[in-house]
Design a protein around this nucleic acid. Structure first.
Lengths: 295, 295
DNA sequence: TCTTAATTGAAATTTTTGGTACAGCTTTTG
DNA sequence: CAAAAGCTGTACCAAAAATTTCAATTAAGA
């Protein structure tokens, strides 16, 4: 006679705990107003907000102690200490295994639209990584880590946003970083300052934009180094580019997906930040300090 | 005087806190036998062993409760709660500060940089998809497909670029789409036109920006519907948001990754485009025609 | 509008926890 | 070897924390 009442303990031993935070998020609708306030406080400083006393938690959330108690009870804990114990254990587990992230938890059929789209995007990312020569990637990191260079980001209609995204990060990591609008009228005059010391990082995918191409050609003619992030069909900018990093972009959509480009961008940001850590760290700290001074 | 009064904070205020663990290790010799047992327990499960109760800690260390108390007193704390508070703060600071993550320099460099980054991002995407309620996603698609609504996109320092990305696509798919800059000075006056018919799509991840929150709160107060794309810790904007779509953002980088947010964005664009195909198709064709006429 | 149900917090209550005094034991030292 | 000093645990107490009660308030329904 089997005692297999439990389904979970059959084969998969250490199933990643469905983080309490995630559960709270999903149940958010079913909470009363004051429970929501408790939930938001907890999630916004997860899980540290929950490690204080009930009174402290209640005050910070702007509700009463009993409401906090009702909140944790509703989450299924026998009491506040029980709740705290869970938080501690979760935190410890998470900290001990830094790679406990990709938690394949509930198999609740996600929105099919979203799920299938995601699978396609993931396929793109894998293909993108495989088709980029490590040497090329490293060379670009090297280039962007050179403090004597000026870095200019630019992009087309849709990819311009990615260029801005890159610029907003690199601007903090290092100096001499800016963004150039695609329209010729907006950059013509700036070109007089572009020379051998400059690097243009251009984002351009199909329906390649002529104005971005023109920008890069002009810059290259003046001696600038051009780095191109594009699609597998390669923008014509490649003719003047020193380095080309292509990303797969086809998705089940009427539009192309830029996720691969973003992946490369973020990987570049991460690598350059690490490379320039000695100088980047104080810059990041300074930015953080300024942020905190505002209020 | 024993200790130098000179503080090294003349210019660089908040640098590396001398972890309590380090101090304990250095002072180990000066401890009594039972204090040493306490110290060893704490160091071996630092700092979690210290987050339990005195009684628990004493039992695990194999000593009595008073010895534990004497131990923490000797470390300079006014009592056990004070000691615990310190541990929590230390832990929180270490975990939250993206600056702290870079302390142990790993040796992987070059080719693996992109590949391992990609794997982490893929993990994020999977986790993101699994944690979004299908109903929520569909509801947002429905909302953004309503031609009678005005759609406004906005975002913070880094996420603003994603908002622009979304806006540049939706602008073509449908009418009445725009982008709002985060700074209050730039949107204050526009708020008079925001009402029940408006939808605000806000992008906001940790180091949540107050100005974006203010924008959403103001808009919500006037009856607008707020859709929030955020991280698993949920921006405070959630208070006023009708729909919340969280994305996992932690990557092997000093920066958070926005790939999950981009995934959701693109999936929304794809779904809405399909939903509104009858009207979107002629719009897209018209845009293409205009592009070709320009030269 | 009135009634009913749900939600919430002030205050009282109970439980737990941290803290202290003191006596026994161990080690050190003259 | 004896006296002093230091260390440790038992037992108790005080303080603080969690929890329950219950009345007031608010929202929902008829």
């Amino acid at each position: 006679m089997k005692h297999s009442n439990m389904k979970n303990d059959s084969m998969i031993p250490p199933v990643d705990p469905p983080s309490l935070a995630e559960r709270i998020r999903l149940d958010m609708d079913s909470f009363t107003p004051s429970e929501k306030r408790a939930a938001h406080l907890l999630l916004s400083h997860y899980p540290f907000a929950g490690l204080d006393t009930v009174a402290e938690f209640a005050t910070r959330a702007g509700i009463s102690a009993p409401s906090v108690l009702r909140f944790v009870t509703r989450l299924g804990f026998s009491g506040f200490p029980d709740f705290q114990k869970h938080l501690r254990e979760e935190l410890e587990a998470q900290l001990l295994s830094p790679l406990a992230k990709a938690s394949p938890l509930d198999k609740s059929q996600g929105a099919p639209a979203l799920a299938s789209f995601a699978e396609a995007v993931i396929g793109n990312l894998r293909a993108t990584v495989e088709n980029i020569a490590p040497a090329e990637f490293d060379a670009v990191v090297e280039l962007l880590s050179d403090p004597r260079r000026h870095i200019h980001f630019t992009g087309g209609r849709f990819t311009g946003a990615l260029a801005r995204y890159a610029e907003s990060h690199f601007r903090i990591v290092r100096s001499q970083v800016d963004f150039i609008e695609g329209q010729p009228a907006l950059w013509r005059d700036r070109m007089i300052e572009i020379g051998k010391k400059d690097v243009i990082v251009a984002f351009d995918i199909r329906r390649y934009q002529e104005d971005v191409t023109a920008l890069c050609e002009t810059a290259a003619k003046q001696g600038a180094t051009v780095v191109l992030l594009t699609d597998p069909w390669i923008s014509p900018i490649a003719r003047v580019a020193r380095h080309v990093l292509p990303a797969h972009i086809v998705a089940p959509s009427n539009w192309d997906s830029s996720t691969g480009l973003l992946l490369i961008t973020e990987a570049l940001v991460a690598a350059v930040t690490k490379r320039l850590w000695e100088t980047a760290k104080p810059r990041m700290e300074a930015v953080e300090r300024l942020r905190n001074e505002k209020p």
